[in-house]
Write a protein that binds this DNA or RNA. Structure first.
Lengths: 332, 332
DNA sequence: CTGAAAGCGCTTACAG
DNA sequence: CTGAAAGCGCTTACAG
């Protein structure tokens, strides 16, 4: 059915070896035969077969991305960053997401074997022992936002602790003492680090003030519920810090429904700086994570590991965050 | 380096054929040898090589997606829908996006050869002759939102015309006559269809009323500029219809800055129903496109074409839209 | 410069 | 039930 290198060789009356050389730009081909081969290849609309080439060259020119879910702006930005960086290097992107549990993640990992040159992994189900057990041996890998701190694997983490810490410091500087946190899901590394940053900064900058943690799971609904919940409180917090923007937005809706004004009655802050942070009213003060950048950097490191297996391993790099002040905590 | 089927065969003292049979669940293997093979495979952490398998089976278990860009919620939702549907069928997803021009799109198309079993194409650079020239022969394909109406190719289009038409009818029903449209980019099929729907409905439901089209390009900035522009007008429109949500949001910001109230002073509507539509204030009345659904349906059709090359071709299916009434056009 | 041959890691008729 | 062999479509030493 499809045109193969043999068809081109026959038609151009050369060996398949010459076709291969001509098409791959090797110098050791006469201009004359090269031209003939090129012409025939074009006529026949010959396209090399990726799998066959990969099998012999041991390179797929593809990198895999193992993600927990594709939902939300965080992941779309991340993939976008990875994709742009990959494209710039002529690499393809195989995405694999939405594995509900560890066994699905393991299956996805297996399926990558022979299809990718390296792997970007961001999955809550993944830890060091999981990788030891399921990672194809010798497959280069970069870990994103995982609790494994560079033991054997290159890793890239967002400075969640620092971001949360800076936000609390900012809120305290604006005169708030009673600052509540809407937390992210348990067992989520980002969430845990943000919580830790909140606690640590509260202790440092508002010692003696109540530490107040409302449960949440990074969804708008959980933010809304947290908002309702804090409206019931005898003593309301002066500021609410959502561990991500979408929960802060949910909380904002709960407050608005109750006629509580932001920022006049309660200050509100988020984390991530997804586009929504700027579209809600008032726009959210938040912690910016350059997500697309994160993706691009992760890809860059992966390529480094692929090209030189010896380099870079065992190293965890931190990605900075940045405080973005908008109106939800008051201005002036 | 990596463990191959030969290693397993040697260790289990059988032929590679038996290993292949055992691992692929063929019945013609003794339980005893099967067990032995399985155990050895596990011990050695053997994982079949994807490229090798693809080469011989002619199946990659992968579908490719050719997209214009990964930016924005539209594409993230689309990919999410495709990914979910693919995963449900055990298929992988190779994404390729951000090709600035036709030659890049062509290169991307070529690169898919031998890596995918079929292709989902949504690219502004793609038309019928382009596909004829660059599509690997025999590769199953489904077109999304392209002007090619099912000549030779299965296609899936959003009912942009119907959605825009219904929105204008709704605005007229709410008493508006002077309705302006913020248009999408030229040469964009979705944008053209929405414009056509607007014009057609204006003629039908508000005959004699001025048809007013402001230029835009689907970005927030262009919506903002359009908002500024219409504030200058001697006679302002009673309602503004953004050809997508993000432009409507940009316009909303321009109006808010000028102290013009929505919906009291001007009604505002969008198109797409991306999450932002619900987060802005007031929430946007818009036309919902079930984007993830669209992706899932597209994948389903592609699988049908792959499994039975004869079926379904030449057919353009339309995806319905749905009017979502929120507060930006007033309620009651 | 060019070709014949080996081989990448699999699967699958074909024998036995 | 099991194995030897052919072959998928390429690339690359090895000769000439």
């Amino acid at each position: 059915m499809a045109v193969t290198i043999k068809d081109v060789a026959r038609e151009a009356r050369v060996s398949v070896a010459s076709v291969s050389r001509a098409l791959n730009g090797h110098t050791s081909v006469t201009d004359q035969t090269r031209l003939r081969i090129m012409r025939v290849a074009e006529e026949l609309r010959y396209i090399p077969h990726g799998a066959a080439r990969s099998l012999i060259t041991r390179r797929t020119q593809t990198i895999g991305a193992l993600l927990p879910d594709l939902h939300g702006e965080f992941f779309s930005e991340l993939i976008r960053g990875v994709d742009l960086a990959a494209r710039a290097r002529g690499l393809h992107l195989l995405v694999s997401s939405s594995h509900g549990d560890a066994s699905e993640a393991a299956a996805a990992l297996r399926a990558m074997q022979g299809r990718v040159d390296g792997l970007l992994v961001m999955s809550p189900h993944v830890d060091a022992s999981f990788l030891r057990d399921h990672l194809p041996v010798g497959l280069p890998i970069v870990l994103l936002n995982t609790p494994i701190k560079g033991q054997h694997y290159a890793a890239l983490n967002i400075d969640n602790f620092g971001g949360a810490y800076a936000m609390v410091r900012h809120l305290v500087a604006r005169g708030h003492r009673r600052i509540a946190l809407i937390a992210g899901p348990e067992n989520n590394f980002d969430a845990a680090e943000r919580l830790r940053g909140y606690r640590s900064a509260m202790e440092k900058f508002a010692p003696g003030s109540p530490v107040q943690v409302l449960p949440g799971d990074f969804t708008e609904e959980s933010g809304y519920r947290a908002g309702k919940q804090l409206l019931e409180l005898k003593v309301r917090p002066q500021a609410v810090f959502g561990a991500n923007d979408i929960m802060a937005a949910g909380c904002l809706f709960a407050l608005r429904e109750a006629g509580v004004r932001v920022p006049q009655d309660i200050a509100l802050a988020g984390f991530d700086d997804i586009p929504i942070a700027h579209f809600v009213s008032p726009p959210l003060t938040t912690v910016r994570v350059r997500i697309a950048d994160l993706g691009a950097r992760a890809l860059g490191r992966l390529v480094a590991v692929i090209e030189d297996a010896a380099t870079e391993r065992d190293q965890m790099q931190m990605v900075d965050t940045e405080l973005v002040v908008r109106q939800s905590c008051g201005t002036s």
